[in-house]
Design a protein around this nucleic acid. Structure first.
Lengths: 146, 146
DNA sequence: CTTGAAGCTATAGTTGCTAGAGACATTAGC
DNA sequence: GCTAATGTCTCTAGCAACTATAGCTTCAAG
């Protein structure tokens, strides 16, 4: 049996985050010691590692919730899991495209800054006028998490 | 003089967002009409467009605050603005590297899903065991905003 | 047996907005 | 001039996914 600090260290998740996951129902309520401290077994550790890994891969907690409920029913077809992963992949590809454009734009800005005064600074100038941009980096794509 | 909805439309920023920017001091308090509605001139529109553009490029509101105060003092050297832009570029490059690794991992996961049952699903399996990964996509990089 | 680390609960804060309620202002059509 | 639709006002609360703080209790080592 592991304390919360121990599984946290093993799974690479901070202690308050584990308590948070329990609170929102991603992890089941842990058993308690005589002194009211949470105790975890190997299954809990695996589940936490699963969550951590999925978070690393950029899945939202909602997606992870779905994936976990899928993995809890191993006799079902895996179409749903595949769909979640594909959606995530598509999302990552969108972010990649956008970030690539942003990188180009920022490089242009930075290269042109000659170390003069703000009045002549291309960084400020480019930010003030989108028409100076080469790429169309409009329309966000809300780059959340990972 | 433009109403809040008009500059919002022109700058591509939603009305409540403009009020929010005013609230946190990114935009100065707008003048008011007889009926207490906010009215904006060209300077306000330019400032808002600046903010919008910088947000598009992934700058945080804090960075934008700094950039705005720089652009308000055009006689200063532009080293600071350059530094902010370079930091942003570095951040974007870090995210790009990470997202590229994630994409590879997700592609591996998705390709291997054969349409069987969850029990055999590589998506679930890979998420449960980091050692099945080829890349090291650990250590977040908190992918905030753009 | 004492000390210090680790654990507990509960609440509030973070970032960058977005949504809702209920009241007032403005504008377009008739 | 009137009415209806749209726009704007303030205020509060909510979103993700945590993180931090305060003030307490429990545990393990020396």
């Amino acid at each position: 049996m592991l304390t919360i600090g121990k599984i946290g260290a093993q799974a690479g998740v901070k202690v308050p985050t584990i308590r948070y996951y329990e609170q929102i129902g991603l992890l089941p309520e842990a058993g308690r010691s005589a002194g009211n401290q949470r105790l975890y077994g190997r299954k809990a550790l695996e589940r936490l590692a699963f969550i951590r890994h999925a978070r690393d891969l950029g899945f939202t907690l909602e997606a992870i919730r779905d994936l976990l409920s899928l993995s809890d029913n191993p006799e079902q077809p895996c179409v749903a899991a595949d769909a979640i992963a594909r959606a995530q992949l598509a999302e990552v590809e969108r972010r990649l495209a956008r970030l690539t454009a942003l990188k180009a734009e920022l490089e242009r800005m930075v290269v042109q800054c000659a170390g003069g005064k703000i009045a002549d600074c291309r960084v400020i100038e480019v930010l003030g006028d989108h028409s100076l941009c080469s790429t169309d980096h409009r329309h966000p794509e809300s780059e959340s998490s990972p």
